[in-house]
Amino acid sequence: MKTLLNIDDGKKVKILKISGGKTVRQHLQCLGIHIGDIVILKKGSFLGGPVLLEVNGYDVALGRGVASKIEVEEVE
């Protein structure tokens, strides 16, 4: 299963599963990240750093820990 950490920069992905507690899930929902949504991975994690996602036209940074909990598949 691929997570946001195994995707190349610039790829479009669909979010399949968000593991982790309710708080993380709710927080992600607040920023417009839901299961089934399609997002673009703008910048992958580098040296344990965060990833940068583009969600419906705006950018969201997710720490490595959070990114590893989000399972995705590449689309297109």
Binding site: H27, P50, D59, A61, V66
Partner: peptide, 10 residues
């Protein structure tokens, strides 16, 4: 804590 979840405004 799970880590960073933050919007990066333009």
């Amino acid at each position: 804590t799970p880590g960073l979840i933050m919007e990066i405004p333009p």
